[in-house]
Each structure stands twice: as C-alpha cells, then as structure tokens.
Simulated scan of single mutants.
Amino acid sequence: MDKSKVYYTNFRTTFRENLPQKLKRLITTAGMMEQIDFHNKYSAVKIHFGELGNLSYLRPNYAKVVIDLIKEQGGKPFLTDCNTLYVGSRKNALDHLDTAYENGFSPFSTGCHVLIADGLKGTDESLVPVNGEYIKEAKIGRAIMDADIFISLTHFKGHESTGFGGALKNIGMGCGSRAGKMEMHNSGKPHVFEEACIGCHACEKNCAHGAISFQEKIATINHDLCVGCGRCIGVCPVDAVETNFDESNDILNYKIAEYTQAVIKDRPNFHISLVMDVSPYCDCHSENDIPIIPDVGMFASFDPVALDMACANAVNQQPVMAGSILEKHGSHHHDHFKDTHPNTNWQSSIEHAVKIGLGNEEYELITV
C-alpha cells in the first residue's frame, strides 16, 4: 500500500498571512475542494464544542474557515456533534446548543447552523451495518448519516482512556448516539443510583423493552431485558440512571475504530487536526489543565488513520511543558501519552484501524 499523504503547517504567522488564512491554504493544498464535489451537498463538519468551563477546545474561527470553503464550492455545511453519555452541559440537544453558543459556535460567528445529530435526548440514530469484530451495527447520530459529505475538524489532545483524542476519537465516539456511546464505553448495562431516584417513572414509560420496574418507589433495571439503548439516561430528570464506563481501554479503541468506519465509508470524507493546547484530558472535562507540550501545528489528510499517526509522532517529538502533568509524571517511555496516562495504549486504535482497512499508518508528511 502506498503511503498516505498528510499535509502539515506550523503556527508561525507573517504580516501577510494569519492563522485562518494559513489553515485555508493547508486545506486547499491538501485537495479538499479539488477532490470533493460540494455543490448542493449537505456537508457535516464534526467538531467538539467543548464542555462549559473548558477553554482548550478549538476556537470557532477555525470552523469558519472550513465552513466558508465549503460554501464557496456551493455546499450546504453544518457544524455537528452528538449528545454525551455522561451528565454535563451537553447531555441533551438544548443544553448542548446553549453550550455551543456560549463557547462561540453560533451561525453569526461560523456562517452556518449547529445541528445536534442525535436529537433532543440522544435517541435519534441511524443503524449502520458494520459486521466488525466488536460492532455489528453502529448507532450513529441521524443528521450525520443523512449528510452527503463528512468532514472532521479535531482538537488533538490527550485522553484518559484512549491515550489521545484525535480524528478517530472525534469521529467514532463523537458521532455515536447515546446508545452508541454506551456500546463503546461499557461492557455492561446502566444502573440506578438509588439515593437520587425520585420515583417519577419517566424511565419506565420510555423503556421499550420492559426492563425497568419499581420497588418501594425506586427504579431497578433488569439487565436480562435491557438492550443498552440509553433512553432511561436521557429522560431521567435527576440524573439517577448511570452507566459504568467499564470497558477495557484497548477494546474501547477497537470499537471506536469500527464506529469510525461506519461513519465515513461509502461517502466523501476529509479530516483536519489542530495540535494545539494539547491538554492531558478530553475537552469533555469542564476543566482543562495546562498543555503537556508546546503547540505543534495544523494537519490535514483524506486518511484519518495516517492523520492520527502523524499527529501522535509530532507530539512525541516535542519537549515536555514545564509545570505540566507530564513533567510531574516523568518521561519514561518516549511516549508522552503513555507517560501521561500509563494505563492507556493509543497504538491499539491505530493497529485495529489498519486491520479493518480504515486507513494506513504509513504516511508521507508534506509541509505547506
């Protein structure tokens, strides 16, 4: 297999070219507009809007560059993400939109609308056949699957479970509906935190499989009947239904790769990653610690696997940021992600993605 092309530019600017202009040149040189016909096509641009309180997510200015390029080609772009499985500021579409707007992602700042792909309660999904080793039918936010073209715009950072959060994580986990996220994160089923349950029966009314009953006004879930759809999590008014997040990290990475394949197969796709503000944790955290390395640059490719590999290699070539968690932990493995989160193995996602034919870990880095 020929090496995949990954295009790169640093964050240095001149009086003639600022960062948005530089990102535009990177995307143009990489061939996004040349190789994809955007005319009259719905184009999903997948991005993470950032949990409220987190300030390391990508600025909306970068999203506007991508949106403007698509619109110049006659496309119909929208920014999108799916609701979270955990309780936070993006657990339903209304809170999610409020968070996106507060963090600067409005039609006025980006030039397009924001659509929460899996609907109000995270249950609006498309079932996509995968027939993978771990996933047989991926559950993807419907608006994402309804789009003609898929573009990912990723903030590349560390992650406490997968090692790093790159293009595969942004696509695979990010595009999963609530049931899809549960399938990736858990080896079991949700349970009820009894101390918080108020006995309102909302979960029971919304369970299509008769898995929920009440004993002394407290809900219980029969795991033999439960299918893990996550609807009970979405409808609980007091967040009393919880999930375990107990899947092993390697299998989590395998499932993310298979979900990514479900999202991008059989339609035009392109991927952009910005390696900046490389926080040790995901942007799903309401806090963000100081970066573990200095800012590196912008990367783009038609191959999300090669893109993640190039970004990971670039990060591991950087010095450790003074005062960071990484400096505190020490650099013992020549792998900044492994040293930051010793129980993770980011290589597993790359290896499985290559195994299922999602992309190529061998790449040619082209400096723009």
Rank of each mutant, 00 (worst) to 15 (best):
H332M: 10
A353D: 09
S301I: 02
F11E: 01
A63D: 08
I272S: 04
N54M: 11
I325R: 15
V6P: 01
F164K: 04
V128Y: 02
A63I: 06
I293S: 02
I233E: 08
V227A: 01
K217R: 11
L115H: 01
V263D: 04
H201D: 13
E194F: 01
K255T: 08
E17G: 07
F337C: 05
P237F: 10
N186P: 07
P190W: 12
I325F: 07
F245S: 10
V130G: 02
C311H: 07
K71R: 14
H185L: 09
E242S: 13
V241C: 12
I366G: 05
L365M: 11
R59V: 07
L52Q: 15
E362V: 03
H332R: 13
I171F: 05
R59C: 05
Y57K: 15
A211L: 12
S161F: 14
E125C: 08
E216A: 13
Y259H: 11
H336S: 08
V87T: 12
A143F: 00
N316V: 01
R231I: 13
L26P: 12
D308Y: 03
E102W: 03
I325L: 15
A312K: 03
K189Q: 10
T123S: 12
I36L: 10
E34K: 15
C175H: 01
T220S: 11
R25V: 05
Q318M: 15
G165S: 03
N83K: 06
C236E: 10
L69V: 08
F156K: 06
G132M: 02
V305Y: 02
G188C: 08
A314H: 03
D68I: 00
A208E: 10
H113Y: 02
L26V: 09
K22V: 09
T13C: 06
P319W: 01
R90N: 04
E195P: 02
C311R: 02
K91H: 09
A63Q: 14
M298Y: 08
V275M: 08
K139Q: 13
C112T: 15
I140K: 00
I256Q: 04
V305Q: 07
V238D: 10
L120Q: 04
G199H: 10
I36V: 15
N206D: 14
D148N: 08
M173D: 00
A211M: 11
S349L: 14
L26H: 11
G323M: 05
C82S: 15
D239K: 12
K265L: 04
T13G: 01
Y254H: 14
V130D: 04
I27C: 12
F150G: 00
F49G: 08
A211D: 09
G104L: 00
V192G: 11
S177F: 09
L55I: 15
G172A: 09
V192P: 11
F337W: 12
S279Q: 02
G74T: 11
